[in-house]
Simulated scan of single mutants.
Amino acid sequence: MQFSEEDLALLATPKGVKALLKAKKINLKSIVKTLHYEQSLELLQIELVKMQQWIIKNNIRLAIIFEGRDAAGKGGAILRFTQHLMPRQTRIVALPKPTELERGQWYFQRYIPHLPNPSEMVFFDRSWYNRAVVEPAMGFCTPKAYERFMEQVSEFEHLITEDGIILIKFWFNLSKKEQAKRFEQRAKNPLKQWKLSPVDKQAQEKWDIFTHYREKMLDKTHFKFAPWVVIDADDKEDARLAAIHYVLSQFDYEDKKLEKIDLDLKKDLVSIYHQDLKMHD
């Protein structure tokens, strides 16, 4: 079918676009939301580039920890953080399971070489907090090793922050229903099947056990010098925007225009952890 210039001009009108979307059964709200997301993300990423220049200029050492249940969106958020940053001053740390040698070392030892150098931003896709939730929930560490970690982590983080490292700790909070949905999507998508692991397969079965250790972790390792920031992660796109916006809000970098970015996000999407904080499961 061929269209005249007049036909194309008619389709380009607001009424024409609406009629076309209706005929194709396209969700207009979903399209508008995606467009707002992409626009907001670009503006925030521009601010991230400015912030990185300030970090480089002032020899800042910034470490950002991303923790959360499997499929909470940690990797996707890190990707959007780092997408346009300078590679030489940006590192993503996602350590594999420890080697035989590392299992005989002090637990924190394997993480120390990955801490940020001056002028550097390091993004931890999971961190030393593996020992606070995943390892005890899955039986990958002994109760004694778990208790030792819980006793030592405050001193470890106090030492590195006292030395000048800025530490931001994110917990991406995901509901059980949304996690199951994302696992199903991964299983069906050949480009994402590699993300499924044996641990993922047990995440739903051990949901309550993970919740128990998550609560203990947040309660016992929320420090004034290194607080936990909880992100509602059931909406991936909103979670990414909220996390980036939070990090940018913590620094007074040059030519900052964060207040001009209008984000249509829920007010309670980002919360500083406290004992009475209600988190969906």
Rank of each mutant, 00 (worst) to 15 (best):
W128M: 07
W128R: 07
A132M: 08
V133R: 06
V134Y: 03
P136E: 02
A137Y: 00
F140E: 11
C141A: 06
T142Q: 14
T142V: 09
T142P: 09
P143D: 10
K144C: 08
K144I: 10
K144N: 13
A145S: 15
E147P: 02
E147F: 10
R148C: 05
R148S: 13
F149P: 01
M150D: 09
M150N: 15
M150L: 13
E157C: 05
E157I: 00
L159I: 10
L159N: 12
T161R: 00
E162A: 13
D163L: 07
D163A: 15
D163Y: 15
I165Q: 06
I165E: 03
I165L: 09
I165W: 04
I166E: 10
I166Q: 12
I168S: 05
K169S: 00
K169Q: 03
F170E: 01
F170I: 00
F172L: 13
L174T: 01
S175L: 04
S175C: 08
K176R: 14
E178R: 10
A180S: 11
A180M: 13
A180K: 11
K181S: 12
R182L: 09
F183M: 14
E184S: 14
Q185E: 15
R186G: 11
R186S: 11
R186T: 12
A187W: 09
K188A: 15
K188P: 07
K188G: 09
N189S: 11
N189W: 06
L191M: 14
L191F: 14
Q193E: 13
Q193R: 15
Q193V: 12
W194G: 06
W194M: 08
S197T: 15
S197K: 12
D200R: 05
Q202S: 14
A203F: 02
I209C: 04
I209V: 14
F210L: 05
T211P: 02
H212N: 14
Y213C: 06
E215P: 09
E215T: 12
K216N: 11
M217N: 06
M217Q: 03
M217L: 12
L218T: 08
L218C: 08
L218S: 08
D219T: 11
D219Q: 12
K220A: 12
T221R: 07
T221A: 09
H222A: 07
F225H: 15
F225D: 13
F225I: 08
A226F: 06
A226D: 05
P227V: 05
P227N: 09
P227Y: 03
W228G: 01
W228R: 02
W228Y: 03
W228C: 01
V229Y: 07
I231E: 06
I231V: 12
D232Q: 15
D232P: 01
A233V: 08
D234S: 10
D234A: 06
K236P: 07
E237V: 01
E237W: 04
E237I: 04
A239H: 03
A239T: 01
A239N: 00
R240S: 06
I244K: 01
H245K: 15
Y246R: 08
V247K: 02
F251C: 00
K256M: 06
K256W: 05
K256D: 03
K257A: 12
L258H: 04
